[in-house]
């Protein structure tokens, strides 16, 4: 039984290690995916994506460490975009009304003279 558990975890660890090595290599390739190596193709994209995910991971790690130290972590606090959009549309409507009001004043002046 113990043997089984041991070999199960060993396999699990190995899989992770291999996957991790593969991913790390992709990240490296993605990071310096410079001019050399013409004809990148679909693999190049996967490498590029892996590099970006790795960046995101580092950021997450830093945030977690900061939180462990008891620091305030600025979780990106954004107002709901739907509300912002709505606020803009109301502002735009107001702009149109302002415009129509200006037009009305012009008409009044024109009819007065």
């Amino acid at each position: 039984m113990t043997d089984n558990v041991m070999s199960f975890f060993a396999a699990w660890m190995l899989t992770h290690e291999v996957a991790d090595e593969g991913l790390k290599a992709a990240v490296l390739r993605g990071e310096d995916g410079g001019p050399e190596g013409m004809g990148g193709g679909p693999d190049a994209f996967v490498n590029g994506l892996a590099a970006m995910v790795a960046e995101e991971k580092e950021k997450l790690k830093r945030d977690l460490e900061a939180r462990a130290r008891g620091e305030e972590v600025a979780i990106e606090q954004q107002t709901d975009p739907a509300f912002e959009e709505l606020r803009f549309e109301v502002g735009e409507l107001r702009g149109r009304l302002d415009n129509i009001e200006g037009l009305l004043e012009t008409l009044v002046r024109k009819s007065g003279s």
Binding site: G40, P42, A44, F45, G48
Partner: peptide
Amino acid sequence: MAALVYRDPDR
């Protein structure tokens, strides 16, 4: 654009 960035003519 990704095709250009990653040099992938098929894409």
